[in-house]
Amino acid sequence: MAELIGGEPTLTMVQLAEHAGVDLTAARLFWRAMGFPNVPDDAVTFTPLDVEALRAIGGLVGGVHVDRTTAVSLLRAQSYLADRLVLWQIEALVEDASRRHKLDDTGARLVVLDRIAEIAGVLEGQLVYAWRRQLAALAERMDMEVSGRSVEESGSDSLPLPRALGFVDMVSFTSSSARLGSRELAALVQGFEFTVRDVITSHGARVVKTIGDAVMFIADDLPTAAHVAVDLVAAIKARPDLLPVRGSLVWGRVISRSGDVFGPVVNLASRLVDVAPPETVIMDPATSERLATSSAAGAFSFVQRPPADMPGIGQMAPVELRLASPEGTPATP
């Protein structure tokens, strides 16, 4: 594995700090922010690649581009996502080796360990490519949004981002997964995740996070999120190998931090999906009214549901969202 980290380790933490031109405290903070356990200051652990990375982040702070708190946040972000990414990639490669070579889990992992260095360059190149594309797309969306803000919005203390968001989760996942073997469970989870990601991104919405048997998505406008929600239910329903799902949809203001979004509407969406019947999408009354009075209202129909008690929110009469019939069902919340 030495070739993945720039050769055999030759430097201690003290030497890492000296070579990078930072103090020892900063070097220790860098390593912890990267998500790795503490190492003794005299343990030979580091390579010239570590020096290069620490020097670069030190220059970002020293050049007055960002403060140390922000630098640590950036390090933690990339480490967290890299950890998730390599786990996903390794498990996908293990599954591939097991399927193609008819190996058990141990044999498949040994094959991957033997070959990972050969494909590391391709994976690294694709990561940089995807990062640049995602950064460009986010910058474009942000430019469009801030250029359209009013003076009142810019100076407001309210949460800054108006968004449509929702949850979709699998029904009876816990009981069903208890009856499945490892391969069947992996196929179920992967089939669900691949399907929802494909539907969400094809509409121009974005996945915020997956939480086992659920996914949270977000969109810049309500009609887009509405199409995502109903199409997700339909796409999963068309897959007999997957469990039924239920969904929620809300509109409101959020704040984005650490790759996640926060705000009262996130809690509302989470509570709504818990009371949604299988293969339905439900909304709160305010979101329903907003969609029903929008230019996209004709694409949908709205069905009043019985009041439901939601912890931390109280009683609410949700509205079920459906696609309009081909004849054009009136949109009346």
Results as ranks from 00 to 15, higher is better:
residue 303 V to W: 13
residue 150 S to E: 08
residue 150 S to C: 07
residue 7 G to I: 02
residue 36 F to C: 04
residue 11 L to W: 10
residue 253 R to H: 10
residue 135 L to S: 11
residue 291 L to S: 09
residue 129 Y to M: 12
residue 184 E to L: 05
residue 125 G to A: 08
residue 245 V to K: 00
residue 67 D to A: 04
residue 118 E to M: 11
residue 75 L to W: 08
residue 142 M to G: 07
residue 127 L to A: 07
residue 62 G to A: 10
residue 327 E to K: 12
residue 269 A to Q: 08
residue 193 E to A: 14
residue 153 E to V: 11
residue 54 L to I: 11
residue 137 A to H: 05
residue 266 V to I: 09
residue 206 R to E: 11
residue 211 I to H: 00
residue 262 F to C: 10
residue 270 S to V: 06
residue 16 L to Y: 02
residue 19 H to V: 07
residue 288 S to H: 02
residue 219 A to G: 14
residue 11 L to K: 10
residue 306 P to V: 14
residue 54 L to E: 00
residue 178 A to P: 05
residue 248 S to D: 07
residue 145 E to F: 15
residue 10 T to Q: 15
residue 66 V to G: 07
residue 37 P to A: 12
residue 182 S to P: 09
residue 42 D to L: 14
residue 46 F to G: 00
residue 268 L to S: 13
residue 256 S to M: 09
residue 40 P to A: 15
residue 70 T to L: 05
residue 7 G to S: 06
residue 139 A to G: 03
residue 248 S to Y: 10
residue 98 S to A: 15
residue 306 P to Y: 09
residue 14 V to K: 12
residue 153 E to L: 13
residue 142 M to V: 08
residue 296 A to L: 06
residue 66 V to N: 12
residue 141 R to A: 15
residue 196 V to I: 13
residue 117 A to G: 05
residue 32 R to D: 03
residue 304 Q to S: 15
residue 329 T to I: 01
residue 215 V to Y: 11
residue 236 I to H: 04
residue 271 R to K: 12
residue 234 A to C: 02
residue 78 Q to S: 02
residue 281 V to C: 08
residue 66 V to Q: 07
residue 166 G to I: 13
residue 146 V to G: 04
residue 236 I to K: 11
residue 54 L to S: 01
residue 232 L to D: 02
residue 92 A to R: 14
residue 223 P to K: 13
residue 8 E to S: 11
residue 32 R to S: 12
